[in-house]
């Protein structure tokens, strides 16, 4: 089943300088896809367009056939680059907040994962370290039974141990029916979990796409090496 469709999507922040130009992408369900590209190539812009934070200048995006709006947002679980919670919130309030707004949110799973981190559920978000906040953010996002997960740079700015935790949480909480799109430029760390990859260049041009395992087998190179070759 087609989870995501982008048709001729153009988005620019400055007139005449499009970050994405006539961008087309179709994503099927049940895959973990790496949206890989250098800084400024439009990875985050695409994720924000799909999650409804940005408005495209032209073109159309649909999630499970729904145009971006109230219904599509109920199907998408979005992990932004930054922590978007009010620092004054307690973890318990955060779980209650997600339970209130997302019908697909599994509060018991979220509480269990928070407990695994050995954090008191009554602690305040502002009392947590940056790395722990990122883990909590990921727990909240992955505790939803969404159709499409958009993870924007989930391992950027965290230590290697935290990276392992994050990737482990993604893989262990992944519903095989759902699709995960991960953006990153830290390919080595993430390529082990990817089913497919998309190499995105400036202007949203897709330079190479395909199955990660097949690409590795055909070229005898890792995705990271392929990436360096393509963007040399």
């Amino acid at each position: 089943m087609m989870v995501l469709q982008c048709k001729n999507v153009t988005k620019s922040y400055k007139k005449g300088v499009p970050v994405l130009k006539d961008f087309n992408l179709e994503v099927e369900s049940g895959k973990i896809i790496g949206l890989l590209g250098p800084n400024g190539c439009g990875k985050s812009t695409l994720i924000k367009l799909i999650s409804g934070l940005l408005q495209p200048d032209s073109g159309k995006i649909t999630v499970c056939g729904e145009e971006i709006g109230e219904k599509s947002k109920a199907l998408v679980s979005y992990l932004p680059e930054r922590c978007y919670f009010s620092p004054s919130m307690k973890l318990r309030e955060l779980v209650a907040f997600f339970s209130d707004f997302y019908t697909d949110f599994d509060a018991a799973r979220a509480e269990a994962l928070i407990k695994d981190l050995k954090i008191d559920i009554n602690s305040n978000l502002k009392s947590l370290s940056k790395g722990t906040k990122e883990k909590v953010l990921l727990i909240m996002v992955m505790s939803r039974r969404a159709r499409l997960y958009l993870l924007d740079e989930p391992i950027a700015g965290v230590d290697p141990a935290a990276r392992d935790y994050i990737l482990g949480t993604i893989v262990s909480n992944y519903d095989p029916e759902a699709t995960i799109i991960i953006t990153t430029h830290l390919i080595t760390d993430i390529e082990q979990v990817l089913d497919e990859f998309v190499f995105l260049s400036y202007g949203g041009e897709i330079l190479k796409t395909g199955n990660a395992e097949e690409a590795r087998n055909e070229s005898g190179k890792s995705l990271n090496e392929l990436f360096k070759e393509v963007f040399r």
């Binding site: 109920a74 930054r82 997302y102």
Partner: peptide
């Protein structure tokens, strides 16, 4: 301002609400 136009806006505007 905080709920709509700062980082918190990322949560507010991704809620399944008009």
């Amino acid at each position: 301002y905080k709920n709509l136009f700062t980082d918190e806006g990322y949560l507010t505007f991704t809620l399944p609400i008009k």
